[in-house]
Design a protein around this nucleic acid. Sequence first.
DNA 1: ACCAAAAGCGAATGATCGTTTAGTTAAGAG
DNA 2: CTCTTAACTAAACGATCATTCGCTTTTGGT
Lengths: 190, 190
Amino acid sequence: MRIKDRDKQEALFLAAVKVVNEIGFASSSVSKIAKEAGVSPATLYIYHKNKDDLLISTYLNIKRKLTDAVLGDMDDSLPIRDGFRRVWLNLFRFAGDHLDYFQFAEQFSNSPYNDQVDQDAVDAMYEPMGRLIRRGIREKVVKDMHPEVISSFVFYPVIILSNPRLTRRVEMTEALIEESFQLAWDAIKL
Amino acid sequence: MRIKDRDKQEALFLAAVKVVNEIGFASSSVSKIAKEAGVSPATLYIYHKNKDDLLISTYLNIKRKLTDAVLGDMDDSLPIRDGFRRVWLNLFRFAGDHLDYFQFAEQFSNSPYNDQVDQDAVDAMYEPMGRLIRRGIREKVVKDMHPEVISSFVFYPVIILSNPRLTRRVEMTEALIEESFQLAWDAIKL
DNA sequence: ACCAAAAGCGAATGATCGTTTAGTTAAGAG
DNA sequence: CTCTTAACTAAACGATCATTCGCTTTTGGT
């Protein structure tokens, strides 16, 4: 028996990201994504059971790449502030390198599609971050608040600042990224 | 000659918000929105020149209501911190009262539709906020950074914290909202 | 070398899409 | 009350939608 083509898998993933970012969920059709991937619409259904499945697995694929890139080099022996700083810088680098992934993920997670993903599975990917936050609280370096509150002050500003659709007037230079991290740290430090 | 019906205008606005929030941009069609509004699809074209125009003006309508509710009672004589605090609390109250507006706006502003809106016009609505930030910097109470950076640390966490799609584990009580404001203030204060 | 089976595709399915047309209804001006 | 005009609609337009069908091609196992 024949085996599924890894290249087609990847081509479909990249095509979904590209088409959705260029024309939005409203206009993105299976045939447009298939054409962009250089594949028949019928072939797409060998890899995904329907359109929703294609989009959901594209999202999960991005989330996995994101958490790998951002949390992959976490080190429990690092001082708390350095741990946060490393993740912060990773996030900016990833956003710069893969703006398209970021944009797709934002479009997706704000849409009703998000209700179809297993949120606990996504949250589990962020577990290393939760560990860092809890350690910071235990060591009396970080304010004792729910990890989701801490995260929202540290990481969501990054999502805004690295999205040129929302932040048109500011160019995020190396120095400005470092300065901005100080704001994030000031928000959460004890 | 006959006059346009204000109730239909409003019904179309509410229907667009409701349908888009329930089934997303991907599945939202003109006929579904018209049916929800209790109106013929053809009638919709008397009020909007096409589908995009309907969605864009729905978004701008929400943005106007939002800035009115959040920035409408700004007072230049208030101490800086109290000014920020008032806007912060307004934003939480508005998010609680009109979660549907918030959700629509987030879906919209993260999609390519956003490229079709005059961003300068939207930015102008936030001008009172820019004034407050610049006054804070001038009086050496707020860090001297670009207003968009300051805003991203103060207000975007609110958008996350008040979105139950993203923040499922934390219930934002009055006390927690007040505590969270302290984090926002710590981030930007000198 | 051959076979089984899954990959792969072009074309067709019926449904729904955004928009227009042709005609009816209702209300403000006189 | 009448005329005018724009609001309003049901039905229809061609286009495109998500998905499937019938068939061909490829490939791993023997």
